[in-house]
């Protein structure tokens, strides 16, 4: 039976960029306000789930040709490397550092290496969630 999902698909086209933007906002705001890598990753996978709901697995695989198991591996690698990076500078494992920089457009900002660790968490959460949902959805 063919169904007409025009309203759902149009709403998804408007809503999913907003959800992605909100997830990026929550990811970068995690140091000073509620949020962080975990919630941001869940929200980004929520946007992909919304795409999966209004289209199908094949269309979404065409839009986002990502192997989510690889995303988990890259995220774990980033998190582990930021931990071991402290050993290079003769500091204990998982020591983080920050410094203030004068960036062109943003101005005076503090860049912290904990953001890199959070990026690993973000990628792992997206990868695990999407792997679970896609393997359950693909089975006949």
């Amino acid at each position: 039976m063919k169904t007409n999902d025009l309203i759902l698909q149009t709403v998804t086209k408007v809503a999913s960029p907003v959800i992605f933007l909100f997830s990026i906002y929550i990811f970068f705001g995690g140091h000073y306000s509620p949020g962080g890598g975990f919630v941001g990753g869940l929200l980004a996978s929520g946007a992909i789930v919304l795409l999966l709901l209004s289209y199908d697995i094949k269309t979404v695989a065409n839009i986002l040709p990502i192997d989510y198991k690889l995303v988990v591996a890259i995220g774990l690698l980033i998190a582990a490397l930021t931990g071991t990076g402290a050993l290079v500078f003769d500091a204990p494992f998982m020591t983080h550092a920050y410094q203030y920089f004068d960036l062109p457009i943003i101005g005076h900002t503090s860049l912290h290496t904990a953001v890199l660790f959070d990026l690993g968490v973000y990628l792992v959460v997206i990868g695990v969630t999407m792997t679970i949902i896609q393997t359950i959805g693909e089975s006949e």
């Binding site: 199908d56 697995i57 094949k58």
Partner: peptide, 11 residues
């Protein structure tokens, strides 16, 4: 409720 499955393989 409408289709019986949440995520379709190929619509």
């Amino acid at each position: 409720i409408e289709k019986g499955e949440v995520i379709e393989n190929d619509r």
